[in-house]
Design a protein around this nucleic acid. Structure first.
Length: 585
RNA sequence: GGGCGAGUAGCUCAGUGGAUUAGAGCAUUUGGCUACGAACCAAAAGGUCAGGGGUUCAAAUCCCUUCUCGCUCACCA
């Protein structure tokens, strides 16, 4: 179905044309939800900016628009307020009818896009042999949510994990592996490398202190790139081990992603460079092959290059990213490519995109977008850095979140003298703990820095996952108590919306579609969080003010339908964020 | 120094096409459980939207400028 907002926009646009002529056909009707219910549900501000061009009083313009509007079915007669705002109030009957329409629909009225555009979401992307840190957590959680939202809308989404599985650090790692665990290179499964990070650290120490070792490491890179079998074997070993560790995190967070690391693009790197050369974009500077960028300068004001081949002949991440764009466009058929990485890489992506456009690797028909997110800061507001000694193990972090949730549940059980099975406690603690971590991250505007604070994210009050989970549990409690199967409710019952709280809740439920469409284009999942939080608040108010099971028919069934629709909206919304609901908690 | 981003209640944050009185949550104070689970609800208090200019009928939002903070600036990714 078409959202209320879209219907109003269309109606106002049509009224503009019939009132003032076709030259206003492309004028934005400026329809938006009101910020204050006393002005109705929606407003159009279009009369005010038109006052100048039409040389008329804005209130008169507003009146002409109203005279040409045909909205009797959905709205009360529109009113003009202040200098010329048009206020719309939805008819209660119309809201009831819409609710009845979405009630039997699993998608709650949200349509699928047609045709299914191919979209690539590039996210998570940890580095082999390094710890996944909080930055990867953000990319993983935000990227997964974006992918889920687009998938729900019907896009053909390819989720790609662009893991750092190539580069100079492997020379060092392999050289160290040869030295410390030679048997691992020749015998299958001879050794469980165990803590890869400590291996990395030890290798790094060797590398920094021992020039001889440094030499060996460099030769090892050359050997690996040349494809020497034992070097490749060692590389494979490191990748496999890392992969296992990543998978633990992905399993815990319920993340599905296809690995296609940097090494995948190795065969295409040379071609990229020669393609740039052929197109006359390439220049050599200080021995490195590069493309100079427009609009980027260094501290002396000179243009900044994008280096695609280092002076030693090696390629770097810009080359890989260009090759990846080409492959994704030509082979994968992507029409939109979304990169979920920290905002520190904004310059890099801007450069890569610019060169890709210039080289016509990236046609105008394909949209590329960097979805940046802010830094992860500690409770003290300072940046959390893995290198600074304090390593932040992601697994520990998630386990701690679950432990907090478990503790909280235990306290509650004691207070309420409830008894639950260990399985129940495990399950609830896990869902609540992990949801809290995900929701804390997603509920903020991703572009701002993120203050990582256990107490805050595990707080079970306010705009948090547990609040929403509880708002879902409440209708389920009604269902159990009243012995009601929500799926068997009489769909012929007309939904009566007499109480203020009922009406407010009903209107909010119907906004799901416009919110999802908004996020589909602006890629800001926190908008969904806000919507769900407000929905939960409105449900709690409704729940407080209106009896459900004790109400008389047809109000009883009507309220049951409202409760069910709320629950299903929360469940659906949370599922788009990668969060599961609980029937009891 | 250049580029980018940020500065909104004591704290954490919403506010992305300019619009009527700037919003939540936490914390604080005060009410509400003989129960559709109170992990809830109701109410109070709390702001020169960093400062200063400008554009406009209208600016937290757009433009200029100053200050503060962060990220980033050629062979790591």
């Amino acid at each position: 179905m078409t959202s209320i907002l879209e219907q109003l926009k269309d109606s106002v646009s049509q009224a503009l044309v019939s009132a003032f002529g076709t030259e206003l056909a492309d004028t934005d009707p400026l329809v938006a939800p009101t910020n204050n219910p006393k002005f109705g549900d929606y407003q159009s501000n279009v009369a005010l900016p038109l006052a100048k061009t039409l040389k008329q009083n804005p209130r008169a313009i507003a009146q002409s628009i109203i005279d040409h509007l045909q909205l009797e079915e959905m709205c009360e007669a529109p009113t003009i307020a202040g200098p010329g705002f048009i206020n719309f109030m939805l008819k209660t009957d119309y809201i009831s009818k819409l609710l009845a329409k979405i009630q039997p629909d699993e998608r709650l009225g949200v349509p699928q896009v047609e045709p299914a555009q191919k979209v690539i979401v590039d996210f998570s992307s940890p580095n082999i042999a390094k710890e996944m840190h909080v930055g990867h957590l953000r990319s993983t959680i935000i990227g997964d949510a974006i992918a889920r939202i687009l998938e729900f809308r019907g896009y053909d989404v390819l989720r790609l994990n662009h893991v750092g599985d190539w580069g100079t650090q492997f020379g060092m790692l392999i050289a160290y592996l040869r030295e410390a665990y030679p048997e691992a290179l020749t015998t299958a499964d001879a050794l469980d490398i165990g803590d890869l990070v400590s291996l990395y650290k030890k290798a790094k120490v060797r590398f920094d202190r021992d020039d001889q070792f440094k030499q060996t490491a460099r030769q090892e890179v050359v050997k690996l790139q040349a494809g020497a079998e034992d070097s490749r074997h060692a590389w494979q070993l490191l990748c496999d081990q890392s992969r296992k560790e990543f998978q633990v995190i992905y399993d815990l967070l319920d993340i599905k992603i296809t690995e296609r690391g940097e090494s995948f693009y190795n065969p295409f790197l040379e071609d990229i460079v020669s393609e740039l050369e052929q197109k006359g974009l390439l220049q050599t500077s200080e021995g490195a092959k590069c493309v100079f960028l427009e609009g980027f300068t260094n501290k002396d004001g000179d243009p900044l290059p994008l280096i695609v081949q280092k002076s030693d002949g090696g390629f770097n991440y810009a080359t890989t990213d260009l090759a990846a764009i080409k492959y994704r466009v030509k082979e994968d058929g992507a029409e939109r490519i979304i990169y979920v990485t920290d905002s520190g890489q904004a310059n890099h992506f801007a450069g890569v995109f610019q060169v890709a456009r210039k080289a016509e690797i990236l046609p105008d028909t394909v949209e590329v977008v960097h979805v940046p997110f802010g830094l992860v800061l500690g409770k003290d507001g300072k940046r959390i850095k893995t290198r600074s000694g304090e390593t932040f193990k992601l697994k520990d972090l998630l386990d701690e979140a679950i432990a907090h949730a478990r503790q909280d549940l235990a306290t509650r059980l004691q207070e309420e003298a409830r008894e639950e099975t260990p399985e129940f406690i495990d399950h609830v603690a896990r869902v609540v703990g992990l949801s809290a971590v995900k929701y804390a991250d997603l509920s903020q505007n991703r572009t701002s820095d993120y203050k990582f604070d256990y107490d805050k994210m595990l707080d079970l009050k306010g705009n948090t996952a547990p609040y929403l989970l509880y708002a879902y549990v409440r209708p389920q409690g009604v269902s159990r108590k009243g012995n009601i199967d929500f799926s068997q409710l009489d769909t012929n019952t007309s939904i009566v919306l007499t109480e203020k709280a009922e009406l407010a809740l009903a209107k909010h439920i119907l906004q799901l579609e416009e919110i999802i469409k908004e996020v589909e284009s602006n890629l800001l999942p926190n908008r969904i969080c806000l919507y769900l939080f407000e929905l939960s608040q409105k449900f709690n108010q409704f729940y407080e003010q209106c009896d459900i099971l004790e109400a008389k028919e047809p109000q009883r069934t009507s309220r049951l339908i409202l409760a069910d629709l709320t629950a299903r909206t929360i469940k659906l919304g949370l599922s788009l964020l990668g969060i599961n609901v609980l029937e009891r908690m």
